[in-house]
Design a protein around this nucleic acid. Structure first.
Lengths: 191, 191
DNA sequence: ACGGTTGGCTAATGGCGTTAGGTTAGAGCT
DNA sequence: AGCTCTAACCTAACGCCATTAGCCAACCGT
């Protein structure tokens, strides 16, 4: 009988793909094993536990999101960069909902945890967007959190079908980007 | 042997309280039964399934959030109302994380589903905030979604400890409110 | 007092994550 | 080519969880 020849990266990648299909809560060790042509206990040679698998998926998703946002904003500045980043992030969440869902609720175990470094990478991608706005250094952290909250909130809610009412969702997203752009352009103007 | 004397409301309320303690994913029928001094199969006399329990918790949480936001904004207008609503919402999510987590991922089964009506109630509370801003009627839906995205995103991320870096989180929240206030005050000013 | 409803129970099923322990494929060396 | 040893895979089994079936006792109205 030939071997499947798996390693941790392959298992995590397949888990991420499966999570995107069946949802992060629907991801099961048995289902993933079947998908890989293997019995579920075999997965434990590559992954310590289901939680460990989820952490791997989360790190992968954060790195992918950071890359998507990073490349989307290259060569752009100001509102262009903001819009590109916002769209890249939302598209990533909508096309990879299971992956992204794995990132919420995981806590990095330390500064060297792949989750922590991938998270910082995503942060860097957003920081690059802010660089072309004249945000006070003392306010960069606040702006970063605002940006992250906006995008995370919108993408998550849309992905969960929480916007079921009349208006066009894409239009709302553009409106939200305009709101952010206005707000970032005039920081520290209100007490 | 005396009876526990439960009903659906008591089970749902206890489930919400337990979810706040152990997290929405840590909520188990066995754990809830033990908490109520009952065996797990007994819960099925009051609740159809764990999913049904979660839906009940979600409806409760949405109604409570709507009430919290609604009462916080009474007698206030403009930025005062916005800040009060934002704080009330975030406080609710932070003090009742399990409850609130139950609301994401549930889809109302129809227009009469308690989840749907509670969701509309929360929406109404936010709409009241917007009333004191001069938002174009055509843009109210967009503003509503932006507000909801902001608050959901920030509260969820803070609740998940996603803001671990230096700056003070409360300060960031104030900054975010200021950003929203500015943005809402000057709608349709940018193309 | 009594009869039905209703809320609790025990027992059992099936699916899940996970562990223990055995077996063999296949890489690497001689 | 043959030998060896690592590690990738397996089966068997445990415990936890949600859920169902079916029984019994407590309360409510008459």
């Amino acid at each position: 009988m030939p071997r499947a020849g798996l390693d941790r990266a392959a298992v995590v990648a397949a888990g991420a793909a499966l999570a995107d299909e069946v949802g992060s809560t629907g991801l099961t060790m048995g289902g993933l094993a079947e998908r890989l042509g293997v019995r579920s206990p075999s997965l434990y040679k590559h992954v310590a536990s289901q939680d460990d698998l989820t952490r791997g998926i989360a790190a992968l998703a954060l790195a992918e999101a950071a890359a998507a946002v990073g490349t989307a904003t290259q060569g752009r500045a100001g509102r262009d960069a903001l819009a590109a980043a916002a769209h890249a992030f939302r598209d990533f969440v909508l096309t990879h909902p299971g992956r992204y869902a794995a990132t919420i609720g995981v806590e990095p175990a330390g500064p060297n945890d792949p989750i922590a470094v991938a998270g910082l990478g995503l942060l860097d991608s957003f920081t690059a967007v802010l660089r072309s706005y004249a945000v006070e250094p003392a306010e960069v952290d606040h702006a970063l959190r605002a940006l992250r909250s906006f995008l995370h909130g919108f993408a998550t809610l849309q992905s969960a079908n929480a916007f079921q009412w009349s208006a066009d969702v894409d239009e709302s997203f553009e409106w939200l980007i305009a709101l952010l752009d206005r707000g970032l352009r005039s920081t520290s103007s209100t007490q």
